[in-house]
Computed example of a mutant assay.
Amino acid sequence: MMKVVRQIFSIPGAARSAFGAAIVAVGVMTAASATAQTVTIGTTAQGSLGAALGAALAKVMDGRGMTLRAVPMGGPEVTIPLLNSGEIQFSLVSADLASLAASGRTVFEGNPQPNIRLVGHLVSFEAGWFVRADSDIMTMADLKGKRVSWGITQQRILEYWGRAQLATADLGEDDIVPVHATAAPAAVQDFMAGRSDAVVFTVGSGLVSQADAAVGGVRFVPLPDRDDRLDIITSIVPGTLIRQVTPNKRRPGVVTETPIMGSTLVLLASADTAPETVAAVTEALYTARDEFIAIHPAFNRMDLKTLAGKVPDLPAHDGAAGYYKANGITGE
């Protein structure tokens, strides 16, 4: 426990208080699990896609005799250091951020996390700026001079995603009116209360559905049609891509086919997590896809052919790599 306490002081700003709160939760679970052998997966905030998928994983593993507790802790600035120190056993983050954390870039500049390991690629996702459905903000350029969610201290990667998308319209922080929030749920609350005009968050997440119901409809703002837009976003958030997202009742805010920035959620484990524990979770992911889909439809996007795929700068966990090798799974 002491080794993670020392890490608090390497975390900037208000994220430090969230990290401290997570430590308290982990400390309680550690004491309780000394006899019960509880395994913990730290996820993003309640209402996020990561929290929902973590809960699904916990339910599936419970049916296989493993007590896996999904705990919403905030953003990856909170969960990844806990994973790196071995205080939690698993976490769900985007592939781009996992690579940046392992190599100590952008959000983790000067603070690499060398003890995180890749288990597998789960589901693709997209995240973009959304506004009220009746807003006059129709293009990314229309965000100039508007009040937008900014500086989310527990999930700073959202600011990088927001910056990348603004940059495709040649906009930067000086061109918008920042509305600061500590966490994504607070940013969405600001939006619903009329204190901001736009928020960047995940398509199909519970928080976007909540906002959609509260304000009478939301709409995602498309990336502009320019040849260099992928180069622009990847210069700010390496490893991301652009997907054409189509309307679906589970994707409020996508009213027509819309180009939105995307990545993939990956499951990580601590290097200290027992190989047999990781192998059991990996086996469930590979053999129980239908069970996962029955719990959450996002698992329809889990492609078993890419489950064992690589992430730059991030080694695979021995337990996952061993399972893939023994079963001839290449991820290619």
Rank of each mutant, 00 (worst) to 15 (best):
V28N: 01
M29I: 05
M29G: 07
T30W: 05
T30G: 11
A31L: 14
A31K: 11
A31D: 11
A32V: 12
A32M: 11
A32G: 05
A32K: 06
S33V: 03
A34R: 10
T35M: 04
A36D: 13
A36L: 11
Q37T: 08
Q37E: 10
Q37K: 13
Q37F: 06
T38K: 07
V39H: 04
V39Y: 03
T40G: 00
I41V: 15
I41T: 08
G42F: 10
G42L: 04
T44N: 11
T44V: 09
G47I: 05
G47H: 01
S48G: 09
L49H: 00
L49K: 00
L49A: 07
L49F: 00
L49M: 10
L49E: 02
G50Q: 08
G50Y: 09
A51K: 02
A51E: 06
A51Y: 03
A51S: 13
A51C: 06
A52F: 02
A52E: 14
L53N: 00
L53P: 00
G54A: 04
A55G: 04
A55E: 11
A55S: 12
L57N: 07
L57G: 01
L57C: 09
K59E: 10
K59W: 00
K59L: 00
V60P: 00
V60E: 03
M61G: 06
M61D: 08
D62G: 12
D62E: 14
G63R: 06
G63L: 02
G63N: 10
R64I: 03
G65T: 06
M66S: 04
M66D: 01
M66R: 10
T67D: 07
T67Y: 05
L68I: 15
R69T: 02
A70K: 02
A70W: 02
V71G: 00
G75M: 07
P76G: 15
E77F: 00
E77M: 09
E77L: 11
V78H: 05
T79Q: 11
T79W: 06
T79C: 08
T79A: 13
I80Q: 08
I80W: 11
P81K: 05
P81N: 00
P81Y: 08
N84I: 09
N84A: 04
N84H: 03
S85V: 08
G86C: 09
E87T: 11
E87A: 15
E87R: 04
I88P: 08
Q89T: 06
F90G: 09
F90W: 13
S94M: 04
S94T: 15
S94E: 12
S94W: 07
S94K: 10
A95Y: 09
D96C: 14
D96R: 12
L97C: 12
S99W: 12
S99T: 13
L100H: 13
A101M: 14
A102D: 05
G104C: 12
G104H: 10
R105W: 14
V107M: 14
